[in-house]
């Protein structure tokens, strides 16, 4: 099952998209705690696009979701300047200066976090997480 969303490059899109994803993930069987973790992952990935790829210039963010009985995968694509979040350094925790934690959250809470180096004209990342066994009948 696939779904596609097109978001504007604006921070005001974040809470609206989170609300949609909360419903979607819950319908796909993700437990409440894991749904919250997914929302954090998506939020951090989208915030990176807004801050680093577009840096205040207008643009679109495309989100495609693939849901299967065993896993959910998100593809996030933009047409901003090249920014590969998978190359961000691993922070030494606890980090007592602001910033640098978003990518750490993504790494901690996904089973696949990949940047598509072959994608031209912007950035494309993949985020995937396997469902816990209790959630595998929701698709």
């Amino acid at each position: 099952m696939q779904q596609r969303f097109v978001l504007k490059n604006e921070s005001s899109e974040l809470p609206v998209f989170r609300a949609k994803m909360r419903t979607f993930l819950s319908e796909k069987g993700w437990p409440e705690k894991n749904t919250g973790e997914w929302l954090l992952v998506l939020d951090e990935a989208l915030t990176n696009v807004i801050r680093h790829a577009y840096s205040g210039t207008p643009g679109e963010i495309i989100v495609e979701i693939s849901d299967e009985p065993s896993k959910t995968e998100f593809m996030i694509e933009d047409h901003g300047k090249r920014f590969d979040p998978t190359q961000a350094p691993t922070p030494k925790l606890p980090k007592e200066t602001p910033g640098g934690l978003g990518v750490h959250f993504i790494r901690q809470l996904t089973d696949r976090f990949e940047y598509d180096n072959s994608f031209q004209g912007g950035n494309r990342i993949y985020l995937m997480r396997y469902k816990p066994s209790s959630a595998r009948s929701g698709s």
Partner: peptide, 16 residues
Amino acid sequence: GYMDSSGIATFVEALQ
């Protein structure tokens, strides 16, 4: 009910 790394950064800055 929800907080991301921007929220964390806000608190870290306030603590400093």
